[in-house]
Design a protein around this nucleic acid. Structure first.
Lengths: 333, 333
DNA sequence: TTGAAAGCGCTAACAC
DNA sequence: GTGTTAGCGCTTTCAA
């Protein structure tokens, strides 16, 4: 149609013999306007494919119509399917609105990119894709007084959090494992600066307690960052007589499984394996792995919906937990 | 510092007793301005942490200072590490500029989200994260006359493409496999609507020809979409007497390896395995897999740099190929 | 070398 | 119910 000519609200107004205000009102639905006029405007816009200039709109109403999706910049982390699925969930929601998603990579000790985006006022709000125990991003966002939500729990006050119910999920899975006859459970986990890991550990310990087992150090192999760390932990766990290794996440679980296979240890004959997080990483495995299943996409939906509400001034409870599923599979006997 | 007060160019001008024009010139570097004045302005800005409002700037200079990173929306695809790494590469480049990245999910037969972003003029250019043989996104972008580049090759004319040199890479790996003594090579591949797969097939066939082998249908198992397809293909390949299975990408390779393991077929004793693409999916594997290694992050760097140049009116050659590495590992004898 | 003023395209009081 | 007008914060002629 209109090759390069950028048709503006003024053009529409002129063509219809009305004022720009009227056109603006027809579009936004705000203010009084006659039904007939509104329809006339809407029709014209539709036919001539008029699109308001977001810059002008943003300048005038002080909105950016962008939100920021901030994810870890560490390459071994951001590539996790979880973040992709979650982002797709966010995307699904924004697609139905005028909002778009701006990416930011944040690091545990460096959030300069996020800062730039916020300082430059490019977004109306931000979604933090993961939370840390000591989280400079959360603190920064709070200090800037910009609407934001976190995917994951936070220890900070007054932070709107959307999270899976890891605590209860892990508790339940732990209990179920014990019910299945495992006496000596062992937890292999990652960085304790990740809130999710802390929460999972708590769930694990609660599960043990419910079953009358007092958690102690000999069952916990935490803070493992690298594959080597994990393999070493697995070694120790086995030597300590573990009957079932519970892995805090899918990537740890993958590492443990590969390690056991190399060592000729059979699952589930020699030892049971369970994971506190299911994912594609574990998908092709056999035996299939007992694990907790969440829906990252739904989490993304929810986070985005809540952020949008927040931006629009609605008030939201701090804690928003989502459900889970316990999948008992072949890897645990 | 300044809590909520949005300091504007006017404030800076007033505080310094100069005009807005002068401040603008000091920042942009455009137009004549005295060194002393410029420095005075710059210092003030630095100290008071003034940030130009991107909306206003965009409105005035008709730029958006955003580029769009468009990736496949199919969940089994966009979660591939390749896209994440590539995006990180794009991000690295934008971080050093005023540009930010807007996400769009596109589908083979539906690019409405991309269309909205472009129609709404939210970006100055777009990077297409993958290319198809019949690519509606490419055609759309061309028709809209907006600067764009593709990561991956395209059959369309006048498209700026940034790609790994898949053809030569696959050709070379194929030759190397033959040199190692494999007589009967077989290629298992995915959708032939993906340009990358078409290119890889071509490289494979060129490699065979160089070695004096005429490629024929019995060596090609292409168009496999699902894990089941791949497993069936692997079955047929083995029954057809394949000595070495060449997989078009990492996920196919993973599927093949799992399948062989289930069937009790040993690598490399019973059969060789090679992959035209290396990734984390294959990382933990043993035996380690002979594969082609690329650098997706560098690809992202390059794509973004080129797009930025394009936006600034520079002219760029259509074809931009990047290097590769052939990794011969245990999986091929 | 610097400044005044006119937009960029849209929204929102405030009239009528 | 509709129009007038004054900005939103920046860039850019055009004068000085």
């Amino acid at each position: 149609m209109n090759e390069n000519k950028n048709i503006t609200i003024g053009d529409v107004a002129k063509a219809l013999g009305v004022s720009k205000t009227t056109v603006s009102r027809a579009i936004s639905g705000k203010g009084r306007i006659g039904d007939a006029t509104r329809q006339r405007v809407l029709d014209y816009i539709e036919v001539n494919n008029y699109r308001p200039n977001p810059m002008a709109k943003g300048l005038a109403d002080q909105r950016k119509y962008n939100i920021c999706w901030a994810i870890p910049g560490d390459s071994n982390v951001y590539a996790l399917p979880f973040f992709q699925k979650c982002m797709a969930g966010v995307c699904e929601v924004t697609m139905a609105t005028d909002y778009d998603i701006l990416i930011s990579l944040v690091y545990e000790d460096n959030i300069s990119h996020l800062e730039r985006i916020v300082e430059n006022k490019k977004v109306d709000g931000v979604i933090l894709g993961r939370t840390l125990v000591d989280d400079i991003a959360v603190r920064y966002l709070k200090s800037r007084n910009i609407p934001f939500v976190t995917v994951g729990s936070s220890k900070e006050e007054n932070v709107i959090q959307i999270d899976n119910d890891h605590e209860n999920a892990c508790k339940e899975l732990t209990e179920r494992l014990i019910e299945r006859g495992y006496k000596k459970l062992v937890l292999i986990g990652g960085s304790l600066n990740h809130m999710v890991n802390v929460t999972r550990q708590k769930g694990f310990e609660l599960g043990l307690k419910t079953a009358g087992i007092e958690p102690d150090e000999s069952m916990l192999f935490l803070g493992n960052e690298t594959t080597e760390d994990v393999e070493e932990a697995a070694d120790k766990a086995i030597k300590a007589g573990a009957e079932c290794i519970v892995c805090m996440d899918d990537s740890i679980c993958r590492d443990v499984i590969l390690k056991l296979r190399r060592d000729g240890i059979c699952i589930p004959e020699d030892i049971g394996i369970a994971s506190f997080y299911d994912s594609d990483l574990l998908a092709g495995n056999q035996p299939q792995v007992t694990a907790l299943k969440y829906d990252p996409q739904k989490l993304g939906n929810m986070a985005c919906n809540i952020l949008l509400k927040l931006i629009n001034g609605e008030s939201i409870p701090d804690k928003n937990l989502m459900g889970y599923e316990v999948l008992i599979k072949e890897s645990t006997g």
